[in-house]
Design a protein around this nucleic acid. Structure first.
Length: 377
DNA sequence: AAAGTTCACAACCGCGTTCTG
DNA sequence: GCAGAACGCGGTTGTGAACTT
């Protein structure tokens, strides 16, 4: 605008890029859970994320929103996408507005990977074969969401932690698409018409030899169709967040609906976030995303995982186990400071606390250093 | 079994639009 | 009304998994 050229949205050299780690997802979710997302640009800093605001927004809208519908596009959906595309062309967000819980990005991808090809084949082969082609392409697209595993690679060792996103009901949303607009869906509309309460339930299940713990946090912050949440993570190397677990009650207020009390640890709980990143089954990327702990640390951490101590630690961290049962020796479980995880070492000494942060935020983030603000904002 | 290719999709980029002071 | 900031959208790219040779 006005001759100066477009200013970059952020300093690319100082933000993390590429696939999101589970801990980043949790950070973002827990921040939005508590504070909403009024200002995307400021959010990463306030949430202690080394990400561009745009990136946060995208991650939230496309993958972390609790109202997202996971799973296959049905044939009917695909057919109607094709029809809507005939009308609107590549107006993905417009098309997406007809599919509660679907994102424009998702629809765009489905179009580019399946529907466009199908259409092209249809035209070249004629309608006789189109049914066959249709079933082929649609089964391939469906397979992409048939099942989802938290970790794509090796199975977990010693114990498993399964995060289940169980969005089992529909709900309605506000007008703004970002706030989860809910367009016309018959089932949802019916529910709305009949005043049927709608909610989404997400669960964390932690299994080990001792049994199963299920942590459920419920959400009813407006909502959408978020039927059965399962899908696969093909590319990118990071798990999609059906496996992450959150729920929102009211205006991002977490509420516990099960016997277990579970609150997502917030920024100050460095150990929790670190452990999430270090926990082998949670890592979709075998390679660390950022400067990692040294070999010694990693191997001792692995031992912890293998010995199952991590579970005790997690339980104690989450307040799931009474303290008398928690025998873990903290000396044995030295977690790297979270700052090291997210902030390259060379910047650690430059971490001022933002003066503008309000007291409430300060309470949350007092322990969490913010990225130096070089943008002048 | 290894190498090469294709597929699927998450994430990024840049531009247009909207908002705010 | 204007300028700059912020947001939203659509196109494109990067990358890991799956498949083929």
């Amino acid at each position: 605008m006005g001759g100066k050229g477009r200013t970059p949205c952020c300093d690319k050299s100082q933000v993390k890029r590429g696939p999101w780690s589970p801990s980043e997802d949790l950070r973002l979710i827990s921040f939005i859970q508590k504070h909403g997302h009024g200002n995307w640009r400021a959010l990463p800093k306030q949430a202690g994320l080394l990400r561009c605001g745009k990136s946060c927004r995208l991650r939230w809208i496309n993958y972390l929103r609790p109202d997202l519908k996971r799973g296959n596009f049905t044939k009917e959906e695909e057919e109607s996408i094709i029809k809507l595309h005939e009308t609107w062309g590549n107006k993905w967000s417009k098309i997406a507005s007809h599919y509660p819980g679907r994102t424009d990005n998702e629809i765009k991808n489905v179009w580019n990977t399946h529907l466009r090809k199908r259409l092209a084949l249809k035209k070249s082969c004629g309608d006789d074969q189109s049914k066959e082609l249709s079933s082929i392409t649609s089964s391939s697209s469906s397979s992409s969401s048939a099942s989802f595993q938290l970790s794509r690679g090796k199975p977990s060792v010693g114990a498993t932690a399964e995060l289940v996103h169980q969005s089992n009901q529909e709900s309605n949303m506000s007008k703004n698409r970002n706030d989860c607009e809910l367009p016309n869906s018959t089932t949802i509309q019916e529910k709305l018409d009949q005043n049927i309460p709608m909610e989404v339930t997400n669960q964390v299940r932690v299994d080990d030899a001792k049994g199963v713990k299920t942590l459920t946090i419920s959400s009813s912050f407006s909502s959408h169709d978020s039927s059965n949440g399962s899908s696969s993570s093909q590319g990118g190397g990071i798990s999609r967040p059906d496996d992450l677990v959150f729920d929102f009650e009211g205006a991002y207020e977490p509420q516990i609906v099960d016997k277990e009390v579970f609150e997502i640890p917030f920024e100050s709980d460095h150990d929790f976030w670190n452990m999430l990143d270090e926990f082998v089954p949670f890592q979709s990327n075998p390679e660390p995303l950022l400067p990692q702990a040294d070999q010694t640390y990693q191997s001792s951490n692995l031992e912890l995982v293998e010995s199952g101590k991590w579970l005790s630690y997690l339980e104690s961290e989450l307040g799931l186990e009474d303290s008398t049962k928690t025998e873990i020796n903290n000396q044995d479980f030295v977690m790297k400071d979270a700052t090291e995880q997210l902030v390259p070492e060379k910047y650690c000494d430059k971490l001022p606390k933002p003066a503008e942060i309000d007291q409430d935020m300060d309470d949350y983030f007092g322990m969490w250093p913010s990225w130096p603000d070089n943008s002048g904002n």
